[in-house]
């Protein structure tokens, strides 16, 4: 099972290595990790997607909490959170396929951010299912390169983590 953790950490050098080191050392699998500063400049927020059962999740959470630079760890349940990820997908394109690619992009509310004689780059935002769906559709044209940010998430409603 996948869990999405929101981890508030001190915005200091070395914190990312501490967190990443903890995961590898204890054998937990990070599916994705996204990090950036928050509304408070002294705090960064990591969104970590981790694979494992409830026991693993409990251990991960407790071990993270033991790190001095970790301020707070919250499990963001999938259904009550807004989850987004951004992907840039460079697709092989020529005069024959360009229109169809634009059409697909439109359906997914994705944007064409770069066009060249033999390629197009699509920017798409959404949850994991959406990203997977568009990737699958674009594959027929040939994906030259793809980059994803990793998931970020906020719980719905006024509640903060």
């Amino acid at each position: 099972m996948k869990h999405t953790l929101a981890v508030l950490v001190e915005n200091r050098s070395g914190v990312l290595t501490r967190v990443a080191g903890l995961f590898s050392r204890r054998g937990y699998n990070i599916e994705s990790l996204a990090v950036g500063v928050t509304e408070d400049l002294s705090v960064s927020r990591m969104t970590i997607v981790v694979e494992g059962d409830d026991n693993v999740l409990e251990q991960v959470t407790k071990q993270l909490n033991k790190l001095i630079d970790v301020i707070k760890v919250s499990d963001i349940g999938n259904d009550e959170a807004v989850e987004r990820e951004l992907a840039l997908i460079k697709v092989t394109a020529d005069v024959n396929t360009r229109a169809e690619i634009i059409q697909i992009a439109n359906i997914f509310r994705a944007r064409i951010v770069d066009v060249a004689p033999k390629s197009m780059t699509v920017e798409v935002t959404g949850d994991e299912a959406k990203l997977q769906a568009i990737e699958k559709l674009l594959r027929q044209f040939g994906i030259k390169e793809m980059v994803r940010t990793g998931k970020i998430a906020l719980s719905r409603g006024p509640k903060k983590v």
Binding site: N55, E58, Q59, K62, Q63, N65, K66
Partner: peptide, 8 residues
């Protein structure tokens, strides 16, 4: 004293 030891 270490919560991470509980049920480890």
């Amino acid at each position: 004293i270490d919560p991470a030891e509980i049920s480890k």
